[in-house]
């Protein structure tokens, strides 16, 4: 790894920009993201910036129960995030559907079956420090190059070279 690659890798950890995606959440997890911008938790001390558009984001925070309609939206938005990227699932809903599981309009399956999830933050809703910790963990994965999308990309590159 040469110097520039090393600097870029460190920058990925030091400047994770996040984009929040509500896949049918009750808004509890989204409300818990806002304290991250408040003086108490101040996500900017870790270089985290909240961006509205997935094109600027490195980390997508997905909250909420996956519904039949949000599935396609999640895939679209995930594809728009330029790689390297990481996905953080907030709360219980993305992993199972929580209390909404079994409802006819809800995909009662794990978010992992839709997009590769790197970090799970448990809680209903998770506390702000847990979310901050989850983002920091995803940023660390980005630096190490070990998010699922990065590993997949490397594998594809290798496959392309071998074949």
């Amino acid at each position: 790894m040469n110097l520039i690659e090393r600097v870029i890798a460190i920058s990925r950890r030091r400047s994770p920009w996040i984009c929040r995606l509500n896949a049918g959440s009750c808004n509890g997890c989204d409300i818990e993201i806002t304290p991250l911008l408040s003086p108490r938790y101040d996500a900017e001390q870790l270089g985290i910036e909240l961006h509205g558009t997935p094109k600027h984001a490195d980390i997508v925070l997905i909250s909420g129960t996956l519904t039949l309609r949000s599935r396609q939206a999640i895939l679209d938005i995930y594809d728009q995030v330029p790689s390297p990227k990481a996905v953080v699932a907030l709360g219980s809903c993305p992993s199972s559907g929580n209390v909404f599981a079994g409802s006819p309009l809800v995909l009662s399956e794990s978010l992992d079956n839709v997009v590769p999830v790197d970090v799970w933050v448990p809680g209903c809703p998770p506390r702000p420090q847990a979310i901050l910790d989850g983002i920091a963990r995803a940023a660390q994965l980005l630096e190490d190059g070990s998010t699922k999308s990065q590993i997949q990309g490397q594998r594809q590159n290798l496959g392309g070279r071998l074949s």
Partner: peptide, 14 residues
């Protein structure tokens, strides 16, 4: 205690 975030998918950690 707040449960920490975890890397593993719906598997062991959760």
């Amino acid at each position: 205690a707040v449960p920490g975030s975890m890397n593993s998918a719906g598997g062991d950690g959760l």
